Simulated assay, not measured.
Amino acid sequence: MTIEELMELYPLGKIQKTESTGDDLSLRIDEKYFIIAKETLQETEIRLLEKMFPSNDYCINQKKHPWFGYLFNQTIIELQGSFRIMQMQLKKPKAFLQTEWENSITEIFPNLQDFFFLNENNGILIEKYTKKNYTLEELQSIFLTLDADFDTSTTVFVGNFFPVNEQLPKLFQEEQQIFKDEAENLRGKSAFSLSDVALHYFTKDALDKSLIIQTFGKQLVLTTEIQQIILSLWHNQGNISSAAKDLYMHRNTLHYRLEKFYEQTGLSLKRMDDLVFCYLLITK
């Protein structure tokens, strides 16, 4: 939607170069602001408009970054092929070498189509599909190396490859929600994809509504230690040796903890089905 179309829908609004200093709703579009009094809108309209035109700390030039207009403002982009969107959350040191960091990004990603920051800490990378795209493991290594070089802490959600059409902005909106909901649930990963969080993300609502799960959760006492064991086993695909190393625990000690847990609950964390069930219990 363009700023002119907003004026047609809301003739009481106005266009200006600066953000409103009062309580009016300010929507930034193409380096301008559409301003309208909130009392003229219903609450649902306000929420919808804020979602359609998210506020940004950075004023983004849509001519320089056409993907911003395509993803956030429903403008048309003429491209062929499939693309993936990587969402970044970047914690920076006070003396952050941003120009050097951005130069490193453009050098590392030869198939980069667009790259911009939405605000001080959140950015978007758009990469075209080729036969030589980085794997998730390679992306993890890349961002860990950048973190070491620039004293940053980065979390990246690596989206799926999708063709450019009218569906892609909607798919991106869902990926944004997944990133927002799941970034804090991952431990020790700088880069993750949908498959890493799909089980938790798509089952959490059903788990929250289940009386069986609520009752079972109250009966099952999961200490902090056993929760850490469950998470470590989950992230290591049930491999006991790897989990013990991750937990700084002797392998025999971990075996003992697992046997005690089985005796107390009847759930064997050596079985993948029981491990999945316990993982969902502690992350719901």
Rank of each mutant, 00 (worst) to 15 (best):
Q167R: 11
M249S: 07
R271H: 14
L144M: 11
N111W: 11
F172A: 00
I29K: 02
T223W: 03
Q87E: 09
Y10A: 05
E166L: 11
Y262G: 05
I230P: 05
K64E: 15
L139P: 01
K284P: 01
E225S: 13
T40L: 13
Q237L: 13
Y256E: 11
L48I: 10
T2D: 15
P163I: 10
H235D: 13
K170A: 12
L9I: 04
L146P: 04
K209I: 06
K64Q: 15
T145I: 02
N133M: 07
F96D: 03
V156E: 03
I76K: 15
R271M: 11
I178W: 03
Y33C: 09
D196F: 03
M272Q: 14
P54L: 10
I15P: 03
I60K: 08
V221E: 14
L211R: 10
A198E: 13
R28F: 00
G266L: 05
T145Q: 09
E31M: 12
F116A: 04
E50S: 13
K94C: 02
D57I: 02
Y33W: 14
G13S: 05
K260S: 09
E175L: 00
Q214I: 06
G22M: 01
L41N: 05
E5D: 14
S141H: 06
F83V: 14
L280F: 06
R257D: 01
T223L: 02
I85H: 04
L222V: 15
L281R: 04
R251I: 08
Y10I: 05
G238Q: 04
E166T: 14
F34Y: 12
T2I: 05
L275F: 06
K270Y: 08
E50F: 04
E259P: 00
P11N: 11
K92D: 00
F162M: 11
L12N: 13
E45L: 03
T99G: 04
K270R: 15
D147S: 10
A206S: 13
S153N: 08
D208V: 12
A243V: 06
L48F: 10
V276H: 07
D196A: 06
K204T: 11
N239V: 09
H255P: 00
T283A: 05
F216Q: 12
E120K: 11
D57Y: 06
L281Q: 10
N56G: 07
M52N: 14
T224P: 00
G69R: 07
S190P: 00
R187S: 08
N121I: 00
K204I: 05
K64H: 08
P163S: 07
S268E: 08
K180V: 04
F277C: 07
Q140E: 15
Q219I: 01
T99P: 00
K132C: 02
Y58S: 06
K17A: 12
V164L: 11
Q74H: 13
D147H: 02
Y129N: 05
